[in-house]
Design a protein around this nucleic acid. Sequence first.
DNA 1: CTGTTAGCGCCTTCAT
DNA 2: ATGAAGGCGCTAACAG
Lengths: 330, 330
Amino acid sequence: MVDVAKLAGVSISTVSHVLNGTRRVNPQTRRRVMKAIEETGYRQDALARAVRRSKSESIGLIVSDAGEPAFAEMVHGVENAVAKRGLTLLLANSAESAEREEAALRSLLDRRVDGLILARAAASAPTVLDRLRDGATPLVLLDRIYQDEPFDQVGAQNRQSTLSLVEHLHAAGHRCVAVVAGDTRVPTLAERVAGFEDAVRLLGMDPTMQATIAVSDEAEIQAALSHALRHQQVTAVVALSTPLAAAALRSLSALERNVGPDVAFATFDGFAYPDLFHPHLTTVHQPAFDMGVAAVAMIAARMENSDAPPQTLRLRQHVAFRESTADWAP
Amino acid sequence: MVDVAKLAGVSISTVSHVLNGTRRVNPQTRRRVMKAIEETGYRQDALARAVRRSKSESIGLIVSDAGEPAFAEMVHGVENAVAKRGLTLLLANSAESAEREEAALRSLLDRRVDGLILARAAASAPTVLDRLRDGATPLVLLDRIYQDEPFDQVGAQNRQSTLSLVEHLHAAGHRCVAVVAGDTRVPTLAERVAGFEDAVRLLGMDPTMQATIAVSDEAEIQAALSHALRHQQVTAVVALSTPLAAAALRSLSALERNVGPDVAFATFDGFAYPDLFHPHLTTVHQPAFDMGVAAVAMIAARMENSDAPPQTLRLRQHVAFRESTADWAP
DNA sequence: CTGTTAGCGCCTTCAT
DNA sequence: ATGAAGGCGCTAACAG
């Protein structure tokens, strides 16, 4: 910066001001400075600038499972929105571990990110957000919504979507449904279970004839499904996430039940390229990319106006009814 | 930091030294400082530290297409390796655009990342790496390998894998193959095409009976495939990436050719959960996660020893032979 | 319209 | 074994 100033015959202060457009400067000198910058190949040091302004022009994102396609999509959406605003994205993955989540949070905060987007880990510690309660750094909770937290949040309408899905199954004649629910500490999954229970009640289905399988391990899922199919006359299976769907489909295959004719099947989130996946699976599609975009928008809004009440945004999910729930007959 | 120093009754200099373990300090005072840090809830400012040391403890990653599953896996691998080293990941997506790539590069460099991992965009400008030629910031080129660039690189053994694949098809009786190649400015795809040409030569296949379809648009792919199937008696189709495979499979479906019995099919990179995808597709699996991990390792090595000659690492791909190339008969 | 100067929070000689 | 002091590169009063 000193070099530029010297070459242009001005003070570094002027250089700073032409760079930031932060005060009027004579077009003549302005030109000279620009030329000097060009010739010098000078680039502003974003870090020093951030230290001085205590604003880093960056936002941090912590996802709970970078391997899941839905989260990969959210990362994609966040990256897009962040880049569009000229910010930089700092990415971390907690891999569903409370320790890694805590460490990532500290690290990003130490880097003075201007905002933080967090999809909490399944095992997330209740105290992990304490250091953010003062609102110094805007936080938005992504995907996994915690009712009582005083933060902005973005998720999907899990409860209603599950209801629509089960209504559809009920209309097709299904009376006994098995839900592969996984780790129900995850609010997203708990909401979907709650939606299922809503449906059971509303549709007058017999609660004792339904099965909620709250495990994640494939072998356990298979055992539970086997039991449900044989002893509870379950005719439809609903998986609450992509990895659970994979485990369930493998289990059904091992149990020699054909998806479609033998047992109806539906899933949340689903697989990439659903039109190429056979059989075509009835799927509740999460607007993962848009959720990422929305999260960034909320951060931006919060940076403008920090004392508005926290807001929870739930995006609509698209329910695609396909083959896997069409070929079964009572 | 001043607060901590005051509370412990020492100078900030001592605080700095206990924090960094950068010189011997009396266990007594050391304790006092630690306690003061605890009570104050003091955290080091990573940015100020980076400015002073001109080392940011972060690495930048630019991918060319965050939507492709293979790149999502690489991001995952890079994130993992970076976190394991206690560094922070800055992520950007060029979306195959030279401008966005250039912008991302500048932005990350301005943030003084300690190393940079780049999967170049298809349209990448030849000059984009010029500012890195001096070696001040270690760079590793990921996935898309450029022969003549004097940088560390990590990719896959595309040429040999393609050869194995085509040998397999040839052994099954195929003599005319269509390759859906997409944008062959992408070195990865060009290498796979080269591997195909190697195979044609080595196996004595008639070059005029092969089709290389170097477009990405689905309608164009369908038209070209239609022509190749009818007028060139093509019996096997090979797609060189996941999106190309999706387009090709849709095209074949539109042309009413059954994958397997009517026409053999193989793809690179493939779809998630291949065991659930029907028909099971013969696939050359890229070790995308490991490529990401390896890229970080190379950055780390380069930071130790900057004057070793640049190295190109090619990881082996796993070729899984499955149904889609098993059911066809001459 | 422009320059001088005092920090931002930290590390690191140089003294003691 | 510890402190004092000078910057890292930058911005933002405060002066002219």
